[in-house]
Structure formats: C-alpha cells, structure tokens
Amino acid sequence: MEILTGANKDGRIKVVFDDGQIRKDIVQSVKMNDSASAIFFQLYDAIYQELKADYNITGSGTSIYINEPTPEADKDIIITLEDPDATGVTGVGSEWNKGVAGTGGVAEVNELEITESGSRAMDVRVNFTDGSFFLNETVTVTLQGTETPSEVADKIASAFHALNDGKGIFRQNITVSGASVIFTSTKTLADQNITISLTRN
C-alpha cells in the first residue's frame, strides 16, 4: 500500500484488506496538512496492530508492505484505501511480488504436557518459539501451589491466548487436552523447529 498524497482537511480514511480468509477494515483519523509521510506512519502502526498475527509488516518511504511469512501459492488479495470524508488522501494497493507455493506438509501439532503441578506458590515462564523473531512468545503464569496439572495447563493456555491484544500466538491455535497444552499450526507447512520450554522462578 503506497500513500500518494496527504490530507487537505480533517477526517477519516479507511484501508480495506481482504485475503479471502482475513478481512480488516482499518479506519484512521487524519488532520489537515498531514503529509503523505505522516499518514504513512499512522497507517503503518494501525495496519501492524491489525495484521501482525498473520503477516510480517514492513515499510519503506511511504509504502507499507504486507508480507506473507511462509511459502504459499499466489493469493487474490485486495487492499484499497478509501476516503469517505474527502480528506484528499490517496493511496494505491498493489501486488509487489507473487507468492510461490512451498514444499507443503500437514498442520504441525506440538504439545506441552504438565506432569506435576508443584506444592508451593511460584511463577512459571513458558516460551514457545521456532527460533525466529516473529514466532517467539513467552508468558508468565502465577501458581498458588494448589492447582492440578490440568488447571496449570488451562492457565498456561489462557496466558498465551491473551497475548497480542487477545490474538494469541502467530498462526497457532491453542487448546487444552487434559493436562496438555496443544499448539496446532494454522498452516499446512513442512516441519518447523518448534521449542517449548518451561522454567520456574
């Protein structure tokens, strides 16, 4: 998405993003005499917050790049900038680089099983990562020492669900089965090098 012109009056603009599965209507207020560069930074932050759980967001000049982080075939993505209040802001969305299908695979599933819950109050830190910047999340769970293993699993899952303003972990569905926290990839990819670690404070 490239921002072409700034605003000549106060009002709202809207970026519509639709990849066939995810649709976001991102509304941003602008002020008279906001430059294209100023609007770029405002929209960058708004788009990042809305799409960071599914896409890598980068920027250059007055262009915002919404990057698919994993190898996929070309998608029919629609991204437009609308100006309902006639602020004068214009922008154009375009496909900069077509996707290329990856090696494929199945939805990877990783499990953290709680085998014992402890008998004293403590904080537990759980890290879930594939070694990259984009998939590296840590939660801290406070335990009273009276929980069962399944209750500990519930607390850990709830903490991961709450990350990123309730969006959870990047492209992972998190569920609980008994005393296990189950992390299921939402993409059918080749095997990832996932590491799940639990430390007690």
Rank of each mutant, 00 (worst) to 15 (best):
I114H: 04
V30A: 06
I114R: 05
H161A: 06
F160P: 01
V139D: 12
D76N: 15
D34P: 02
T186V: 05
M122Q: 15
R171A: 00
D45W: 10
Q21W: 01
T138W: 04
P69R: 13
L51H: 13
V126T: 14
D154T: 15
A162S: 12
A107V: 03
N8D: 07
D130M: 10
E2S: 11
M32P: 08
F17G: 05
H161I: 05
S177T: 02
S132I: 10
V176H: 09
Y48D: 14
N56L: 14
S158T: 13
G88E: 07
R23Q: 13
R171H: 04
A7M: 09
D123T: 11
V30Q: 04
D123F: 14
S60L: 09
T138N: 04
G91Y: 05
K14H: 01
M1E: 03
V176T: 10
E95D: 08
T148P: 01
V139C: 04
Q42C: 06
S132V: 13
I78A: 11
S37A: 15
D76V: 03
G61E: 05
Y44W: 09
Y55N: 03
P71W: 14
V139P: 04
G93T: 00
T87G: 11
T90A: 09
Q144W: 02
S63C: 06
A86K: 13
T199H: 02
